[in-house]
Computed example of a mutant assay.
Amino acid sequence: MEMLHLRYFVAVAEELNFSQAARKLHMAASPLSQRIKDLEHELGHKLFDRSTHHVTLTAAGSALLPIARDVLEQVNAIPWRLQEAVKPRRSTVFVGMPGGVHPALRERVKQLEERCHDRFELKRWPGTTPDLVAAVHQGKLALSLVRMPVTDPALEMIPVQVERLGAVVPADRFAGRDTVNIAELSDLSYIPSASESIPAYSEDMDRQLSNAGIKKRLKVDGAEYSGISELVANGSSFSITMLDPASPMHLFLVDGATVLPFADFRPQLETALVWRRDRAEEGDLAELVAGVRDVFAEPLST
């Protein structure tokens, strides 16, 4: 018995008409009738009662129909079952996440998780940029979002977001203002908000502010963003943070502090996604990095 015999039988049983079944099978009615007779002979049972105008299933035919359908379904399932059996196992990998990641960027990470779901389970790991860069270099993390600049030659990166920054200033002093000039802050002390978590960025920002005439500094060891906001609200200092109100950093603002864009100074924070170059070039992350390049093809700008 061949699979074709069962396919022919099911087609005739469903149509109860040899001519219609033959058209469905793209063959002539005469050879189809002969194949059914061959099957009946092999099984030792008559499967159809035939008359000039009617075709009906016999008791044996009715019993065979669900069996034949089940066998054909099993055969039809072989290609995808085989593919499932031999495809690579799903790997769990970790993606580094620095603090204050913008919701739009988090959504992109979620899209990457969905795109690579069949091959990778992506789990997130928090940390500062220096720690995350080190973890990627050591192979503990597959990927990581990092605040630029990063200069590790072993890593490859793709820019994913540029965030415009604004001044966190005392609300009462700048009430009713839409912008602030950098010179208006020269008598205030600048409080760095990310010197430990983003040291390279902090050094660059400090240099830019010094060149712009901001000389006073107030370094507060271990201060959280809300603590910095409290100090700004006192009226004698300012800081810098993301300008977009959708940024989670705005959750740390307290009454008495507000964020204004600069009129004559355009600081920004660049974020990139990094991975080990050797793991992407025909390594274990080649497929994941291909997904990264697709999902993050267009950098975000806020």
Rank of each mutant, 00 (worst) to 15 (best):
G139L: 06
Q111P: 09
L143W: 01
I78N: 07
A286M: 04
S33H: 06
P149H: 06
S91H: 12
P267I: 08
S144N: 03
A171Q: 15
E84F: 04
L273C: 06
S195F: 03
T128S: 15
V162I: 06
P130N: 14
V95W: 04
A28G: 15
S30K: 13
K24M: 10
T271D: 11
V71C: 08
G127F: 04
A68I: 12
S91T: 11
L251T: 03
T258C: 10
S91G: 00
L122W: 08
V254G: 02
V254E: 06
D255S: 09
W80D: 13
S202Q: 13
A297T: 05
S226I: 15
D178W: 00
A11C: 05
R89G: 15
G235P: 12
L209I: 01
G176E: 08
S186Q: 15
E196M: 03
V133L: 04
Y225C: 06
M205I: 10
L143Q: 06
A167H: 04
A104K: 03
R293S: 14
L145S: 01
G227C: 09
L132M: 09
V12K: 02
N211E: 13
Q161D: 07
V75L: 03
P261W: 02
R35V: 07
N76K: 14
K110D: 15
H41Y: 13
H102Q: 11
Q20H: 10
S247L: 02
L285G: 07
T151D: 11
S62W: 05
G213P: 02
L243G: 10
I191E: 08
P98H: 04
P126V: 08
